[in-house]
């Protein structure tokens, strides 16, 4: 079965920029490991407004649906999906920038 390539994945316009080997620090980390979609997205929607404009939230998630759904949520809600980084224990750290 075809599957989207695993993380890290970046937005096309950023793929030219150098990516640090470790995920950069973020303003907030939401631990949604072990939670099934849509819970990680509900947690993100609940908490994104607690960080400043332009700040980045990291969502830790291991439900495969989150890998597609958090970037899709960003597109629908006009926030920015910065990048997704694979976690050593499985799952991803999915970085989202608050746009408004």
């Amino acid at each position: 079965m075809w599957r989207r390539k695993p993380a890290p994945r970046e937005l096309p316009q950023e793929s030219a920029a150098a990516r640090p080997s470790a995920p950069p620090a973020t303003a907030l980390t939401i631990d949604a490991l072990g939670r099934k979609c849509p819970i990680p997205i509900i947690m993100l929607a609940d908490q994104i407004n607690t960080v400043g404009l332009g700040a980045v939230v990291a969502v830790l998630a291991d439900d495969p649906a989150a890998f597609t759904d958090i970037p899709a949520w960003c597109r629908l809600k006009s926030h920015e999906h910065v990048a997704s980084y694979e976690l050593p224990q499985g799952g991803w750290s999915i970085h989202v920038r608050r746009n408004y």
């Binding site: 079965m1 075809w2 989207r4 099934k36 979609c37 849509p38 649906a65 597609t68 899709a72 629908l76």
Partner: peptide, 21 residues
């Protein structure tokens, strides 16, 4: 994914990059 025996979201929705839940 919760409706699939594999517990994976549909490969079609994934490939499109749209909401799968």
């Amino acid at each position: 994914s919760c409706t699939a025996s594999t517990l994976r979201p549909s490969h079609v929705l994934e490939a499109m990059g749209v909401l799968t839940h």
